[in-house]
Design a protein around this nucleic acid. Structure first.
Lengths: 109, 109
DNA sequence: CGATAGCGCAACCGTACGGTTGCACATGGA
DNA sequence: TCCATGTGCAACCGTACGGTTGCGCTATCG
């Protein structure tokens, strides 16, 4: 089913979730910036940003000689919808979320 | 952060998501049952159910000589909470979900 | 009982993944 | 213009993953 595979795959790695969370705080950052505060090399971060980008969770913007990445978490909603749908049959809490999702879904790009 | 890693990891595989969805429909099923309607061997299904079980997304019950698995999707809510938190800073839709999650969270085991 | 259906476990295989190093290319500042 | 900084790309490495086969144990049914 669609984008879910890429999104879940991207989110399955802790470093990638770290990057996404950090980008959420910073707004924008380069791979070099992000690598500075992480215990991995710049190239590793770059690869991670690549898979995040493939999943549509991150977008890149060139600024001079830097490339700045910003989070674009919209595709996560599809993954959440999947979880809500599967889980909703067994958990009232998730069922509530499913209703919320379908309501919010009508209002998004 | 906690269970999220196992949950996202488990959900990152399409076969595993299939299994979870099918279990959601059937209620309960054995690894052999599930393997019958999937293009993989029983042992493969068994391994997948193992990782799903490690993530707390599935529970096993012995019934005679069969072992029946049923979905226990509650741990997904933590993963959803993570997504809502990270995404919420950038997406009003996810922000709404985040509020919904914290409200529902107070009412769960 | 014996035979059959189902589970558990281990070994093995190919490949994708996370990570590294190394180096070449581009860009901006002194 | 020269140099420092930053990016892009490729090769390489170890390991974990998805999947298979094979076999032994358990339990149910005739």
């Amino acid at each position: 089913m669609g984008v879910a595979d890429a999104v879940f795959g991207a989110l399955a790695d802790g470093t990638r979730r770290n990057l996404l969370a950090r980008l959420g705080e910073l707004g924008e950052a380069s791979a070099t910036d992000l690598a500075r505060e992480l215990p991995v090399s710049r190239q590793a971060v770059q690869k991670h940003l690549g898979t995040l980008s493939d999943a549509g969770l991150v977008a890149a913007r060139r600024a001079g000689r830097e490339v700045l990445y910003r989070p674009t978490p919209a595709p996560m909603s599809e993954a959440m919808a999947w979880m809500a749908e599967v889980g909703g049959q067994w958990d009232d809490r998730l069922a509530a979320l499913e209703r919320q999702l379908s309501r919010a879904g009508r209002a998004q790009a």
